[in-house]
């Protein structure tokens, strides 16, 4: 399975004056779903293209199983990839598209039918891609990536254009693939989109690494907070000041940072403060994500 470790080492890429990727180092391991996150233009697609030998790095290297992608005997059977802005010939059927690429990953026509079924394109496979919706193209891209049943998958914003049902299916499917021991790397510019799918996160901003850890460690960064509603905001403010808690207005109440609900409740009770709502707010990952990526700019 080691063949499926993806490694990026001091990777850099300049497009003329634009530094798209800069001194980027991280690894992606089998058996886990890794989220590759960053705002628009942060260099995700460029990094994936360098991993796949489509774009030549200016500095450093990007390796698949310890070797450049192109050095593998049948690279398309080792890594399945669905990249942003990959095209389809509008005059080709979905099945025609898959059968055209099948010989070079060593699979037959029957397997092409099989992956069409798998991604929910079964009958549409005989229609021309020119008539496909965005979500159907996204599914055909996924089908292409899955063609050789590869041990590693690289998916660039795979949820774009999928309907809610499709997104739920995709989440389950990616988890299933990882549980089978595959390497799954999924890029996204929205953490919330992959929050329920990924085990690990690699966050980049402006082409540079800002964070790499398990999702749990990222969540720990967010800490806890307690949401309180009271008819006596002044009393609550006084209480927070007295205890040295950081409080800020939020929605129709107040958010108290880094304190759990039990502590706030006990203190309010002791102070005779009337509360209408008292809830522990889970880690707001999106906040952390914005903080991490915002700090880089």
């Amino acid at each position: 399975m080691d063949a499926a470790v993806l490694a990026v080492e001091a990777l850099g890429k300049s497009f003329g004056p634009v530094r798209a990727v800069d001194d980027l180092t991280f690894e992606v391991h089998p058996g886990r779903v890794t989220g590759f996150l960053g705002p628009n233009g942060s260099g995700k697609t460029t990094t994936l293209r360098m991993l796949l030998g489509l774009v030549r790095p200016t500095d450093g290297r990007a390796l698949v199983g310890g070797r450049p992608y192109g050095d593998h005997p049948v690279p398309g059977a080792l890594v399945g990839a669905a990249l942003e802005a990959t095209g389809f010939h509008p005059g080709r059927t979905g099945l025609g598209h898959l059968t055209a690429y099948a010989p070079q990953v060593g699979v037959d026509r029957a397997r092409c039918r099989e992956v069409l079924e798998l991604v929910g394109l079964g009958p549409a496979g005989d229609r021309k891609v020119g008539g496909y919706s965005l979500g159907m193209r996204q599914r055909l891209g996924l089908a292409t990536a899955l063609l050789a049943d590869p041990p590693a998958l690289l998916l660039d914003e795979p949820a774009n254009g999928l309907d809610p049902e499709g997104i739920v299916w995709l989440r389950g499917f990616l988890r299933h693939l990882a549980a089978e021991g595959r390497t799954v790397l999924v890029s996204s510019h929205v953490l919330a989109e992959v929050q329920h799918t990924v085990d690990d996160v690699v966050v980049i901003a402006k082409g540079r690494l800002v964070h790499a850890s398990s999702l749990a460690e990222l969540a720990a960064l967010a800490g806890v907070s307690t949401y309180v509603e009271t008819p006596d905001p002044a009393g609550l403010a006084a209480l927070c000041a007295q205890r040295g808690w950081v409080a800020a207005p939020r929605d129709r109440g107040t958010q108290v940072d880094d304190v759990d609900a039990a502590t706030v409740g006990a203190a309010a009770h002791a102070a005779g403060l009337e509360l209408h709502q008292l809830t522990t707010r889970g880690a707001d990952l999106e906040d952390v994500f914005l903080r991490l990526t915002g700090a880089a700019s």
């Binding site: 992608y69 690279p75 398309g76 990249l83 990959t86 095209g87 010939h89 690429y101």
Partner: peptide, 17 residues
Amino acid sequence: TEVRHRTLTQSLLVEPR
């Protein structure tokens, strides 16, 4: 046609040489 319809990416994924 591979350039126009952006299928060159897929073609080079299955044959990087």
